[in-house]
């Protein structure tokens, strides 16, 4: 099971990094979300070292640590606000530059 979790998180990271390296603005924004979800998965996995049961349900020796789950909740909320902002800015930038390719957006290259 731990190997499976580790491999899964690794694949999500790889997909996220591949996406953020793309030229298209929307794709790279989506890559950012995938990457932040990979980090969240990693945090949850950090808390599941002793077991996978929810706190107060199984035997105390096998419950997972609730603190990383609380951290992940906070991180998800922050990432959601941030992603809404990123999409709004991408919308404005793409409308003004009439393109979604980050190579063609060169207002700052002076």
């Amino acid at each position: 099971m731990p190997v499976l979790i580790a491999a899964g998180i690794g694949i999500v990271f790889a997909v996220g990094i591949y996406q953020i390296l793309r030229r298209n603005l929307i794709r790279s924004a989506i890559g950012l979300v995938i990457l932040s979800n990979a980090a969240n998965l990693f945090l949850v996995a950090c808390g599941s070292r002793w077991g996978l049961f929810a706190p107060y349900s199984g035997s105390p020796a096998q419950t997972s640590d609730p603190l990383p789950q609380a951290l992940v909740l906070t991180a998800i909320v922050i990432a959601m606000g941030g992603f809404a902002f990123v999409l709004a800015v991408v919308h404005v930038v793409a409308l003004r530059g009439r393109t979604g390719d980050s190579d063609d957006i060169d207002r700052l290259k002076n």
Binding site: L32, A39, N40, L43, C46, L71, G82, V86, L108
Partner: peptide
Amino acid sequence: PEAAYKYFYMSTLAGILLLLASGCLYA
């Protein structure tokens, strides 16, 4: 907007790194 996008993008990556650091150090 372009500058804000660039900054926000990089800072979110920094935030993800900070999150990973918290995870590693907590573990």
